[in-house]
Design a protein around this nucleic acid. Structure first.
Lengths: 244, 244
DNA sequence: CGGCACGTTGAATGCCATCAAGTGGGGTGG
DNA sequence: CCACCCCACTTGATGGCATTCAACGTGCCG
């Protein structure tokens, strides 16, 4: 729960469907058994066969895929209110891993409970499908970035996307936000070396665009930053709620 | 329909769920109104607000995302039996475009019909969710390739994945297959320049691994190719059907 | 026969990885 | 309390992989 007394997931889903009090309690019912996990632990590992889905209550998680040569590609980061592993419950073996970046709090979601929730609150299922679709759109945009953008643009785009996601759940005020990621995380996510990420960050900082330091990000010039990022937030679909 | 008298989509879904005769007819019912589209046309364009989903009956399609600077990133190719735009029916605006690579035959799927099909054939819905999950896993693997693999490895991986997908619907005999893609398609998909794709293909050909030419691909040395590709087909989940 | 799309090859440039070395803060243990 | 280590970050030098520019080949089609 944050300062408004509303859980992050309710807040996020409300961006798409304005949930009734009753629907909110259904969601909260899914989050009944929170579990604490320390930073740097794997929730699900690549190749694992029967794994659950989770809702992230607090803290940050990354999903990644390891290669034989030891390098890893981070697929996405999860912030409070996001689902973990919902995409792949139907594949027999998980194709990627989840690791806690910070200490986290998660609720395990039983498939049966989820289906029951869908039945008694159909609008809720629409909201959850929207959330899943948005996550996929983010992976696609991520692919575009890694495939077609230069390093500066890639880093700028990443920070802007992050800001937008965090603003949605009340963890950013559109200027600055807390961010527990290291430059190594950025490197693994963006397909760059950590050394180069460092150089790019310095460049962006000296250009007065954005500062990424001490677990904190400040966006000094959103316009110029969005410009070099080629950032267009349409894919995050963050306009008015569709269903009221 | 192919030579076995079974549509590509039924064949593909059967890899996950062995469909009864009745379930097969439900699927065929979804494919009632086929539409022909010439090569090089857009079915859905990025930014379009209300678009349908389709099932591809024959021919090849690519989904891509355009950038301001004119470059494009191909997200994925669709081959017969694949869905188009199912992922994003819930987002208000499509975040990417679909273009026919060859002349194609598609069936438009009404959301209502799909839901009705789910209700009268629950096993079918599981199979479709599996197909969607597999598509997402492919996008993730694509991201890993673009982010973390060198050009040779990327091209090799792409060709192996393609072969596996086509074998599933009976369009490859595990050695060679027809492939209407140009080197420009590969370049846009793999985040490389067309010139470099050409060089890589020459290199792979001269090494006796694979030939990509005249709309035809021959895999001469699958073992060595999988080796430099770092190819592990687990994410395609192509083992035994799960539900019988 | 010209035009066009696709493919092919060479040379020069440049972005980013890699190697290497060093800084600084936080935690631990002597 | 200080020495030590470890991790994250920082910076410079070097080199390689892939892009870009440019030119040419080749088959197809109007």
């Amino acid at each position: 729960m944050n300062e408004q007394g509303v859980s992050a997931i309710v807040r996020k889903l409300s961006a798409f469907v304005v949930l009734t009090q009753e629907e909110q309690s259904v969601v909260d019912g899914l989050c009944r058994h929170p579990r604490l996990i320390r930073a740097g632990h794997d929730l699900v590992v690549q190749g694992q066969t029967r794994h659950s889905a989770y809702i992230l209550q607090s803290g940050w998680v990354c999903s990644y895929k390891l290669q034989e040569d030891g390098s890893r590609q981070i697929i996405d980061f999860q912030v409070p209110g996001d689902f973990l592993g919902l995409r792949s419950v139907l594949l027999r073996t998980s194709d990627h891993s989840f690791e806690s970046v910070t200490d986290i709090q998660v609720s395990e979601v039983q498939t049966a409970d989820l289906i029951a929730a869908f039945e008694c609150a159909p609008r809720l299922s629409a909201a959850i499908f929207w959330a899943v679709s948005r996550d996929e759109a983010m992976v696609v945009e991520h692919l575009v970035g890694v495939g077609r953008r230069g390093a500066d643009s890639r880093v700028a785009h990443f920070l802007l996307e992050l800001e937008t996601r965090l603003a949605l759940i009340g963890l950013s005020n559109r200027r600055c936000f807390r961010c527990p990621l290291t430059q190594y995380h950025l490197a693994d996510a963006l397909g760059l070396s950590a050394v180069h990420v460092n150089r790019v960050l310095r460049h962006l900082r000296e250009a007065g665009l954005v500062t990424f330091r001490h677990g904190f990000v400040s966006i000094h010039d959103p316009i110029a930053l969005a410009d070099i990022a080629g950032f267009d937030a349409t894919y995050l679909d963050q306009a008015e709620p569709l269903l009221r």
